[in-house]
Nucleic acid binder design. Structure first.
Lengths: 145, 145
DNA sequence: ATGAAAGTTTAGCCTCTGCTAAATTTGAAT
DNA sequence: ATTCAAATTTAGCAGAGGCTAAACTTTCAT
């Protein structure tokens, strides 16, 4: 029954693509939140300008995004004040950092150069499932003396 | 000079983020083109409906996207006719397939399950540089008997 | 204490990628 | 040959994520 097989394949495949698409918005949120956490840790306080500068984006874009992040319960802000993360925001940042670190160290262990590891891990990070992350962790355990 | 250091760091980082962002549109184009190639190989001809079904997207969305892909010189189409790839389109599809295959086989070799390997490779594929791809290739050469 | 610089916000615009509903075309069965 | 179902296209909408320019706060020096 080729029709049935076709449908099944399509369903499987579309699920994967759908996941990839839905990842994209979460990805951006995670990037913002992680970056804000980094900035707060570095200088005690995060201003919109810092975020805009590091993300390579206009101030207005950051403002708009922060509104969305506020709605998602990840950041808090009062007008004209620096940005703060909620508990959930910190949690997300922490999770992201761990993930990022594993992926980056994994690429290095695989023999990839520092610069490339840094760049690629940024892109790959958000598409790695827990299962794959675990496999990378095992590899690191085996291959780091 | 902390100000200088800050600026440098911001520039490096923003470049990475900018790359990630600009990747997204290319990514989608690549997904469409690869999928069209697969469908043509499988059934000789690719219709918009097949693409929509497998991508998990509405027909109208496919139509609109095909227009963009046509402008990019990747596909050709006459109204109400099946979709064709240009030479450039086939080239992109072939490149993507090879990349995809390496990433997927790499994940499998790393000990990731089939289902996860399929899904994660779909997401990761577009964020892997040539250098990382080569490193994955080396790993495969070492670890497949 | 005030005025300029730095930072933030608003307003209004754009493109991309999606959607539904309605029109149109094609192709196949009667 | 006609009709009808399936496929395609058009029209119009939405939301995310960008931008610039202009308005508005805050902060800091003088």
């Amino acid at each position: 029954m080729p029709g049935k097989a076709r449908t099944t394949k399509a369903k499987l495949q579309s699920a994967a693509f759908r996941r990839t698409r839905s990842d994209h918005s979460k990805e951006l949120a995670a990037d913002y939140v992680e970056l804000i956490a980094d900035i707060i840790d570095e200088r005690g306080t995060a201003r919109g300008t810092d975020v805009a500068l590091r993300l390579g984006v206009a101030n207005a874009t950051v403002v708009k995004m922060l509104k969305r992040l506020t709605d998602m319960g990840l950041v808090t802000q009062e007008p004209y004040r620096p940005i703060d993360l909620t508990g959930e925001g910190w949690l997300m940042a922490e999770t992201g950092r761990k993930k990022h670190q594993i992926v980056e160290r994994f690429l290095l262990a695989l023999g990839v150069g520092e610069e490339t590891a840094r760049i690629d891990s940024e892109g790959i990070e958000h598409h790695v499932s827990d299962e794959t992350l675990k496999a990378m962790g095992r590899f690191l355990a085996r291959n780091s003396s």
